[in-house]
Design a protein around this nucleic acid. Structure first.
Length: 374
DNA sequence: TCTGGGGTCCTAGGACCC
DNA sequence: TCTGGGGTCCTAGGACCC
């Protein structure tokens, strides 16, 4: 049976929330990133004044014209767009707007899957069928109307715009929502895949990242259509049975995953990158203080969300960006900062400390609700 | 001036049990 | 004395996503 699945993506979400606060910045190149300065009044400054290890979380469309984008180091972005304005990220505020837009969508279409702070999948199937009597004869036309209704609801509740793709599955909708940004609605049927999807680069498929993309390129496969026409046996040979077969299906636009409206967290973690790499011996005290602080924060997060966990993990990144992890599973779950610190401390003893340290992180997994059966 | 922070899922080997 | 599978748990690393 045909499903009608939407993917909604907020347009330049963090930056757009900031523009509501600082309307004077509208139309200017603005970049969000870097840590929040405690106590500062107007945090807006030119990107060229930045120094540190932060990356861009969001750039306005005006800033993107300079070639900067999410994930780029701010220091590098400062070279490309020194006059762009830099604002620190304010995640509490973005989470507030996230709740607002999701509540507005839920009031119209309750079947929502959360995919992070600024995007969701929506299952329109039941609503499209229910509107058969009073709407247009073509169900896809009715799905488009639903999408524009959702856009309007989001705009009225938050003042923000979003882009929506509507297709028979999540994979295609995720691609489609990007095709007419910002503010567009893109409707794609299965028969539109060759014309609309196949010309796109393979990296547009959610699940094909930098590594797989480069490997495909080396095989001479750049467009999704080339991936669709590739010999499945060749893909399996290079990427393994599961991933190779999935890739081929994805290129044909096949995806049966349901919209999942509820899920429990699997782990809760905190990590921090130091402004300068720390020496494991000389900076031992500072390292230890930060370490304990991370454990306390994780414990607070667990308590606030109502979880305890059995597996305590440590993450360490060296100055050469190599990352190691160690973990230890306890007999009983805990949410106690001191117990987490003890277990993570044992993990630290199993890791080589012969290089400077760039990042330290603490994670708690195998979560359960305290007193609950798991 | 390289490369944040919070997540999920997958793989693979070894231990251990039946 | 030698030889099986299968299943689950734990651990480490890596790819990927927002």
């Amino acid at each position: 049976m045909t499903r009608f699945i939407a993917h909604l993506d907020m347009d330049a979400f963090y930056a757009s929330v900031e523009l509501l606060r600082y309307p004077g910045l509208r139309g200017k190149p603005v970049v969000i990133g870097g840590p929040r300065r405690p106590g500062g009044e107007n945090p807006v400054r030119a990107l060229r004044e930045y120094s540190g290890r932060g990356v861009i979380t969001t750039a306005t469309y005006e800033a993107r014209k300079f070639g900067v984008n999410s994930g780029m180091a701010l220091m590098k972005a400062a070279k490309l767009a020194p006059d762009a304005l830099l604002l620190p990220a304010d995640f509490d505020e973005y989470r507030r707007y996230s709740r607002m837009f999701k509540d507005a969508v839920r009031a119209l279409a309750p079947e929502i899957e959360d995919r992070g702070i600024d995007e969701i999948y929506i299952d329109f199937t039941a609503l499209v069928e229910a509107s058969a009597a009073e709407g247009a004869p073509d169900p896809w036309a009715r799905a488009r109307v639903l999408a524009t209704d959702v856009q309007r609801a989001v705009r009225e509740s938050t003042g923000l715009t979003c882009s929506i793709g509507v297709t028979p599955n999540k994979l295609l909708s995720k691609i489609a929502s990007e095709l007419d940004k910002p503010g567009g609605v893109t409707v794609l049927r299965a028969e539109d895949v060759p014309a609309r999807i196949w010309p796109l680069p393979v990296r547009k498929i959610n699940g094909i990242g930098p590594k797989a993309g480069a490997k495909l390129e080396a095989l001479g496969i750049r467009a999704i259509g080339e991936l669709a026409r590739a010999d499945p046996a060749l893909l399996v040979a290079h990427f393994g049975r599961s991933y190779g077969a999935w890739m081929h299906d994805a290129a044909h636009g096949r995806d049966e995953r349901p919209v999942v409206t509820y899920s429990e967290p699997k782990s809760i973690s905190r990590e921090t990158t130091f402004e300068d790499d720390l020496h494991p011996v000389r900076d031992r005290e500072r390292l230890s203080r930060v370490f304990t602080g991370l454990c306390v924060k994780v414990a607070e997060d667990l308590a606030r969300k109502g979880y305890v966990g059995r597996t305590i993990g440590l993450k360490l990144r060296y100055d050469n960006f190599k990352t190691v992890t160690r973990d230890r599973t306890l007999a009983e779950p805990t949410g106690d900062a001191a117990a987490i610190r003890r277990a993570a401390g044992e993990c630290l003893k199993r890791v080589p400390l012969d290089r400077r340290i760039r990042l330290l992180g603490v994670r708690v997994g195998s979560l359960s609700r305290p007193g609950g059966g798991g």
